[in-house]
Computed example of a mutant assay.
Amino acid sequence: MSHIDNIFTQVRARLQSEGVKLWEEPYFSEDLGCIEGAMENLAAEYGRFLGIPSDRCYFVLTELQDNALRKLAARREFNATGLATFKVRRIDNRGGGGTTTMQDVKCDLNSLGSDLQAAIAAKLQLPDSNHVKCIAAGKMVASNATLASQQLKNNQQLIVIVTGRGDNQNEALYDRINRIKADVEAVVSSQNQLMEMEDQNGSPVFLPPDENRALLTGLGFCEKAKVAMQREDFEEALLLLLEADERFATCNSQLLEKVDNYALLNLDIVWCYLCLKNVTQLPDAERRLSICTRSFRRSYGENFERLYSLKESSGRSI
């Protein structure tokens, strides 16, 4: 987390603990707008309490106030027109900067995912909306389903990966993702075989053919994602991991609880969020880390008892 992000976190937590509402008086008036004197006094008070320069505190407070006012305006517009506002943050990892500036994009919740892609492409001045990949709450937004059916909400934050923008690097990413997906699915189809699996206790796990195919395809995407992560191409890795996550989601939840692969998938997704410096997906990261914790506890015991037992039985030193 950067220094300024840390200040935002501290100031936001302080505001919440004291129940301060920056969009109401004495800090804001519908007639006068931002009341600078009250904001400056609050910045000085918080600066002393948190050990932060008052000018930085003031900057953070005004940014938080602007964000709150934009949310209120978006809520009023949604209630009046049904038009939802999405906070879109585009990932651009080429310069090592992680994510770029957040922008507002409006779209009706009854519209298809493809309509949202088109709106984002227009906002970002991109020629082809098919190259826009939207991620909401850790899931890829499907282009052929409505936003409402995918549980998207007004004022929700989205991250966007642009896989083609007219330059060679992004065009290569778009083509590479499609080629990898086609190759993995072709390999799974051509082998036409069932995968033999065991749970943490070494007992066989029998899968219906459809689940077996979905799991094989998901594991194939995971392996390709690991290669991308090794070369620090976290945009590609995240897209492939989310494709794998969609395949795993079609499997029985009890099956996913019996194998470590799903936990490792979630851990890799969180790692990609971190490397892309994407704080907008923190709630999804927390959810996925909880899945990892539960799975690893089942696999290795609360205090790694099963891991130690396996090492002792193999004759290896602990």
Rank of each mutant, 00 (worst) to 15 (best):
D284M: 12
E196H: 13
A148Y: 10
F206A: 10
A44W: 06
L42Q: 03
A84Y: 14
S309G: 15
S17L: 10
A172Q: 11
N266E: 06
D115F: 03
E25K: 01
E40D: 01
Q254N: 15
K226W: 03
N144A: 11
I52P: 05
T146H: 09
Y27K: 03
C292H: 09
T101H: 14
T100A: 09
L72Q: 15
N261H: 05
Y174W: 14
K226L: 06
K181T: 08
S114G: 05
G138Y: 05
E45V: 00
I180S: 03
N168S: 14
L242R: 03
D268V: 00
G138R: 07
D167S: 13
S17Y: 08
F221K: 14
D284C: 09
S290G: 08
E36C: 04
N41T: 00
F234Y: 15
S111V: 06
E232F: 09
E30T: 12
R75S: 12
E185N: 14
G166H: 12
T99I: 11
E25Y: 01
D104A: 14
T146W: 08
D55K: 05
R165N: 11
E236K: 00
V20E: 01
M1D: 03
L42S: 04
D245V: 02
C57I: 02
S29N: 11
E246G: 15
S313M: 11
Q150L: 09
I318P: 05
S295F: 07
C275K: 13
F206P: 01
V60A: 14
E243H: 15
V60L: 09
K139F: 10
N261K: 05
N261I: 04
L32N: 06
V160I: 00
R316F: 09
G47L: 02
